[in-house]
């Protein structure tokens, strides 16, 4: 019977087989080509990815103030280095840059290990100007013919600081009189705000070191804070700014002294007045706005960030009165 096919008849088996072989070969060809291509891409990619040759960081040049003032006369600024030199440079080199940019001279830092050394350098002309401690200046200005020319301002534009008595937050010490029979930690014996003023304050409250259980001096203000925090001492006396840093860490201020002039910038009276004027003018024109505008000062020491005012040479003579009251002899360098 004749078939009625709805479709074309399918290919014959042999034709189908032949077509199938061709299709399979084409497929193999495509797949092989693709694999070969992938292999080639992977090969080149491997070498390309692992070739790391190149420059990856090239930072902008740091403003190099000294380079613009290399021909100017060099003036040295003395400073006592209680920390590794690079720490001191981080804090004070911006100030040198500022002076260099705002005077006719090129200023460089000259470090020393103590105020005594700085004093010597100032006296023998190794340095032209120096930051000096109030006590050392007051005690030696007459002998070495020194002159304080500037005082730094604090954040309230005040040229003074205070000595403060501190204790732990949970302590029952509320006033100076409570210190009787207690252990007191003080800063260096040469520190005005960390030693002489606190002792003077005790005497003003009819207390002497003998009325306390112990009175011990430590080299740094931070050490005093640490000892009080650890409970080794009932109380301590330090600079106000240092104490304020630790108020949030369990330290409580229970007494603040009268105003104490901030540490002076000192020159020898033999110094060229023109240089002194240049330095004074530069510092007196210094304010926070200038510091922020000139980003090179980003590591500027906080104590020197709020500007300066002129200082009289006898501003620190009250220290001699304190010593006299305490019956202490002046420790000359």
């Amino acid at each position: 019977m004749e078939k009625h096919l709805l479709y074309d008849q399918p290919e014959s088996p042999s034709a189908r087989s032949k077509t199938s072989v061709i299709r399979t070969n084409i497929l193999y060809l495509i797949v092989s080509g693709f694999l070969l291509l992938t292999l080639l891409i992977s090969f080149f990619l491997y070498f390309f990815v692992l070739d790391l040759t190149g420059t990856y960081v090239s930072e902008e040049e740091y403003p190099y103030t000294s380079a613009h003032s290399a021909d100017r006369p060099v003036k040295y600024f003395g400073i006592v280095s209680r920390y590794p030199p690079h720490i001191i440079y981080q804090g004070y080199q911006p100030l040198m840059n500022y002076l260099t940019n705002h005077t006719e001279y090129q200023f460089r830092l000259k470090l020393s290990n103590s105020y005594d050394d700085t004093m010597d350098q100032l006296v023998n002309g190794e340095i032209d100007v120096a930051f000096m401690g109030s006590y050392i200046y007051a005690s030696s200005r007459h002998k070495h013919n020194l002159e304080s020319i500037l005082k730094p301002l604090n954040e309230n534009s005040e040229a003074f600081r205070r000595s403060v008595f501190i204790t732990r937050g949970d302590s029952d010490i509320r006033e100076i009189a409570d210190l009787r029979g207690k252990k007191l930690a003080l800063a260096s014996r040469r520190s005005l705000s960390g030693n002489w003023v606190p002792l003077y304050t005790l005497s003003m409250h009819q207390l002497s070191p003998e009325d306390l259980k112990t009175v011990t001096n430590y080299a740094h203000h931070h050490t005093v804070i640490y000892k009080v925090q650890q409970g080794e001492y009932d109380a301590g006396a330090v600079r106000d700014r240092v104490a304020m840093e630790y108020e949030a860490s369990g330290i409580r201020i229970f007494y603040s002294s009268d105003e104490i002039p901030t540490s002076p910038v000192v020159v020898s009276k033999r110094q060229d007045p023109h240089i002194v004027d240049q330095i004074k003018n530069a510092f007196l024109n210094l304010d926070m706005e200038t510091i922020l505008a000139e980003r090179i000062y980003h590591n500027w020491d906080l104590d020197l960030s709020f500007g300066f005012i002129e200082s009289r040479e006898d501003d620190y003579d009250f220290i001699l009165n304190i010593l006299d009251t305490l019956g202490e002899e002046v420790l000359e360098p």
Binding site: G54, Y62, P63, Y89, Q90, P94, Y297
Partner: peptide
């Protein structure tokens, strides 16, 4: 400047050329 290069003896090297400076003091 940080650069990476290959050397026949040293192999792959990351080299840093850094200024010795603080606040513009170089």
């Amino acid at each position: 400047v940080v650069s990476i290069y290959s050397h026949e003896h040293n192999g792959w090297v990351i080299e840093v050329v850094s200024p010795i400076q603080i606040a513009g003091m170089h």
